[in-house]
Design a protein around this nucleic acid. Structure first.
Lengths: 193, 193
DNA sequence: CTCCAATCTTGACAGTGTAAGGTTATTATA
DNA sequence: TATAATAACCTTACACTGTCAAGATTGGAG
């Protein structure tokens, strides 16, 4: 009947307006019906693209994670060496979520993307930010000529990641920018000791 | 009519069954009506004790935080000195939430208790776990005879807290126990560098 | 004994996720 | 070009949710 019976690109539209809602009012304000309405579509139309609400949320999470990865990739690309790359990744890790606190709660609040992560092993590391950190870290070790065994590497990687993530978490929770000089983290060859 | 018209201690019962629900099925499964039913009470009875659902959730959060504090207090009490107290606090910080991952998501997922935290200042630090950490840390500095100015103290405190919190977060998210030797965090006098 | 405040019940409402089944537009095929 | 198949979308319906208003019940203070 009407010429807009078919939306054309509903799936992407749902994801984008979903992100907008979360960014404006947080995850709690995200309802399938509201998102559908914002896309000028009936409240059950999303089910043509997503099995249920969780599947839409997961798609949105992937999309937000991609935004996050752009930030981290940019840090790596614009750094003069791997050491500065790691430092800048840490800074951006925090500033990204500090700029959008709702993203932090959304990504890490409920069931999240980091599903079956094996730290210190090379299997199943399917969380892109961690993969990038690990890659950069190994390059850093090589650049500096530092020798460490697998376990030591895993622990140090975890320390770096946990510090960044923890600071981001605290920053988002308290709304206070950590007075933290990230450079201190990577001084000398015993970083993060 | 019935001799159980008045529950007697409904408020506490709601909080306790709420905790049980979250512990068993996560925060998403927490509904006022179900909690009320579990207390053998009509679906609107909770409104005599809590303004709305958020107020019940906040009460539950306070209760869970108390459980958490018991753990941390026990760490401090059973430690031989402040250094070991901090180490054990970190271990328990992680093990507590690892034992009950739903608690982590519940406490830190959405709007959380850590509201207006001033790090490095002495006002408004109304988050009990942080207060305890700070107290223990200052005692540690005194025991070791370490001199640091306010800002340095704040940064170091934040590092310790962020590491513990970050590791707990990652552990809960990935379900993997961090292969992290907490003792390394506090070696020497430049801990966490 | 009376009154009152706290507590609980009942009933209603709008908003939610989602299942079932119908409708339209696009694409493939003959 | 005509038709069949499929994917995208719609309508209807239902159970469940949080919340509110109005009234019933109770225990305790005066």
């Amino acid at each position: 009947m009407s010429d807009t019976y078919h939306h054309g690109n509903l799936r992407q539209a749902l994801i984008e307006t979903g992100i907008r809602v979360i960014n404006e009012s947080g995850e709690d304000a995200l309802s399938l019906r509201k998102v559908a309405a914002a896309c000028n579509v009936s409240h059950a139309a999303p089910y043509a693209h997503f099995k249920d609400k969780d599947e839409l949320i997961e798609a949105i999470k992937r999309s937000v994670t991609e935004q996050f990865m752009e930030e981290l990739n940019d840090a790596v690309d614009s750094a003069v060496d791997s050491e500065n790359a790691i430092i800048d990744m840490g800074k951006r890790y925090i500033s990204f979520f500090l700029r959008k606190p709702d993203y932090y709660k959304f990504l890490f609040g409920r069931q999240n993307i980091i599903a079956h992560l094996k730290i210190g092993e090379e299997t199943d590391e399917d969380y892109p930010p961690f993969i990038l950190l690990k890659k950069t870290y190994l390059k850093y070790l090589k650049e500096k000529g530092i020798k460490k065994n697998r376990k030591e590497q895993g622990i140090e990687l975890l320390k770096i990641w946990a510090s960044a993530h923890g600071l981001a978490a605290i920053a988002c929770m308290s709304g206070v920018v950590p007075p933290f000089d990230w450079n201190e983290m990577l001084e000398g060859d015993d970083l993060l000791r």
